[in-house]
């Protein structure tokens, strides 16, 4: 791969010469990461309370896929891509090369001008997702200029002739790691599972061998916004609380409206304090500031939105969202 120059072999002071060595490492394995929509994109999904929920369009900006330091990294896909889930299954996210047992990392984040456009995604889509706007939850810096969109989900729910629209834009950057392909048990606490995963030795989401080719898929489940539990295995979909939030009856449910809905409409236990995780400068997970979940909006934005990404169908990853809850 690398040329060994003529000088290296004929230098008069050969003992002092030492040319940059050629690549003598064994050939790596190749991991192709793809993105697919859940079945809800194809014909919609019916909630437990009888609403038929369809998705008009779902855009997600994600990427920056790589390995942990526990394996030998040959090449990573350090770039982002905007995926239109309506374009189908198995859309390419990135190609990585490595050897050994590796933890995987990736992120969802608002696009920039280098973000690659996936199928059916236009430059207008990218520019629209780049527009920085504020909402009560997104990352706020001292400049107060807002952030672009990581997720842009437009859904429509109908029941008995009543139609409601819900356009959800998520503006945080979420890093994912410590992925496991196993679905969380139905009775498990996601918080406890996340804590256990976050502070254990680095997991091995993938084990790559020489010349091996592997494909892993990330499944995006936009219907997860309507779950009544953070554990996707045991959660049911409920749209009634969202419908009830449309207090002005214009048929469009906004983030502010669901922030006015108390959490008791979803959880009988009422307000909770949820753990968060942050990634420090060394790339390690550590516990972040807990957040108080008091409203339906808090529940959706703080807890449900980061769980929309599933690893290898039913698996999941520990997500750490950058930013803190803003005023409001």
């Amino acid at each position: 791969m690398r040329t060994r120059p003529f000088f290296c072999l004929t230098a008069p002071l050969a003992l002092a010469y030492a040319c940059v060595p050629a690549d003598t490492r064994p050939p790596p394995g190749t991991l192709t990461m793809t993105v697919s929509p859940s079945g809800a994109l194809d014909g919609g999904v019916t909630s437990a309370d009888g609403w038929t929920i369809t998705f008009d369009r779902v855009l997600v900006a994600l990427g920056n896929t790589g390995f942990s330091d526990s394996c030998t990294v040959y090449g990573e896909a350090d770039y982002d891509r905007i995926i239109d889930l309506g374009a189908g299954n198995g859309q390419k996210l990135g190609i990585l090369h490595g050897l050994g047992q590796c933890d995987l990392r990736f992120r969802v984040a608002a696009p920039d001008d280098q973000t690659v456009l996936g199928a059916n995604v236009t430059e207008d889509d990218r520019q629209a997702m780049r527009i920085p706007l504020t909402d009560p939850y997104e990352l706020q810096t001292g400049s107060q200029t807002g952030a672009g969109a990581s997720f842009d989900i437009a859904a429509t729910a109908t029941r008995a002739g009543v139609t409601k629209h819900f356009h959800f834009v998520y503006r945080r950057r979420v890093r994912y790691q410590r992925c496991t392909p196993d679905a969380p048990p139905a009775d498990a606490s996601i918080a406890a599972l996340a804590q256990a995963a976050a502070f254990s030795d680095s997991g091995a989401a993938v084990d790559l061998h020489e010349n091996e080719e592997v494909t892993y898929d990330l499944r995006i489940e936009p219907e997860g916004l309507f779950r009544d539990d953070v554990n996707p295995t045991s959660a049911a979909l409920r749209f009634d609380p969202f419908a009830a939030a449309d207090t002005n009856g214009d048929g469009t449910i906004t983030l502010d409206e669901i922030r006015a809905v108390p959490i008791t409409t979803i959880r009988d236990a009422g307000a909770i304090e949820a753990s968060t995780y942050e990634v420090d400068d060394a790339g390690l997970l550590r516990r972040g500031q807990p957040v108080v979940i008091e409203t339906l909006g808090d529940f959706v934005y703080e807890l449900l939105a980061p769980t929309l990404v599933r690893f290898r169908d039913v698996g999941w990853c520990v997500g750490s969202a950058s930013g803190r809850r803003g005023p409001g």
Partner: peptide, 11 residues
């Protein structure tokens, strides 16, 4: 040299 292990879409 050609980048040996890369994603061709990498900007």
């Amino acid at each position: 040299d050609e980048r040996p292990y890369s994603d061709p879409d990498d900007p």
